[in-house]
Design a protein around this nucleic acid. Sequence first.
DNA 1: GAGTCTATCTTAATAGCAATCAGATTCTGA
DNA 2: TCAGAATCTGATTGCTATTAAGATAGACTC
Lengths: 209, 209
Amino acid sequence: MPRADKGGRYHHGDLRAALIDTAIEIIGERGVHGFSMAEATRRLGVAVSAPYAHFADRDALLVAVAVHAYQLFSAELLPQTDAALTPVDRLAAMARGYVRFAATHRPLFDLLYDASLDKAKYPELEEAERPINEGFSACVLAIAGDDKEVAEDLATAVEATAHGLVTLLLDGEYDAKTVEGAADRAARVTLALVESRHLLSPPPPLPSG
Amino acid sequence: MPRADKGGRYHHGDLRAALIDTAIEIIGERGVHGFSMAEATRRLGVAVSAPYAHFADRDALLVAVAVHAYQLFSAELLPQTDAALTPVDRLAAMARGYVRFAATHRPLFDLLYDASLDKAKYPELEEAERPINEGFSACVLAIAGDDKEVAEDLATAVEATAHGLVTLLLDGEYDAKTVEGAADRAARVTLALVESRHLLSPPPPLPSG
DNA sequence: GAGTCTATCTTAATAGCAATCAGATTCTGA
DNA sequence: TCAGAATCTGATTGCTATTAAGATAGACTC
């Protein structure tokens, strides 16, 4: 972990990587909102203008951190997919994992879903997110019997619910107990969605309003 | 709608209200993130320091706008509750309304759920949010047969899903078609949750993971 | 109506931030 | 060895929030 130990060398060595590490550090301490380029350069003992040789602007650096975060997310979430479980159980496990990641790495999670990074402008974001979406889709498709429309419907519902639960969880103050509680809840809601006739077949008529 | 038409008067008249209006205007144009005190004072033809006679800081002004947004939200959402419908249908209608409000007043919705305003620091926020939560709770309690634990579980699930759907909807680009599509989806998922044995009774054993 | 008090507003200033530019330094490869 | 490219510094611009001290207007009293 390189610190302000440049020791008079003009060139840093790997400022790009050091900036990403320091950004993760600062975001961990102060949240995405509390991160600033200036603070990062201060910690690295480097001129405020130095980062701009490696990143076009603040957002570009945050995107690099976000890519890193997605990789971590994948690494924690996807192993659940390989287990010898039924697709339904795997899906529930992923919902759990989603909640756990958000709670365990809150600042990074906020960076991914709260700091409005423009996915259109930074294609590497979608690229980094893809493994997650694919693991998820595979799971859902297996459940939906390869009916793509049903699968998309179900996927959206499960994703939305997990994400929404996390939002509610993170809005209030939370401790370990409520984290596992929310994880349980996410799993339970996932099961409810999977079994529902409202999602798994041609939808019955809806009351309008 | 008072503009930069102060016309040399030293006192503005009602700068406090004008600031809130202008803030809504700017947030509508540029999003919460793009709002600045400086821009607001510029539009009102007033010194940059003038707002601080009425609001402690930027956040305090945003909180005032958020209170306004909650009132609008209530006004659009709660009428659904009075209709002569079953509790379940009312709940589905509220899920719809939730999605519609978010899509129709996106900047205000972002202000409520994206700009991390500290509810502990500004109790008026919870106060303004209360009518919504109460209408919602009443509905859910009726469905759960006054079993508070089940009701809380169900409420969380429905709220989370609606919120999550909105998040997904707002993340991608969206047009009128997808808005109603998302509203439909929210209603459908709500029905699925309400009918699920996983939520409406002592929960069956969960696979761990 | 004169005088006082207070709220409101102005001017002026500080400090933090992102971003740019010109130039210095170091690295790289021919 | 030397030219060019990459990296970094120092100085600067212009935006932001926020504060302090003083001017002005409205409200309230005598």
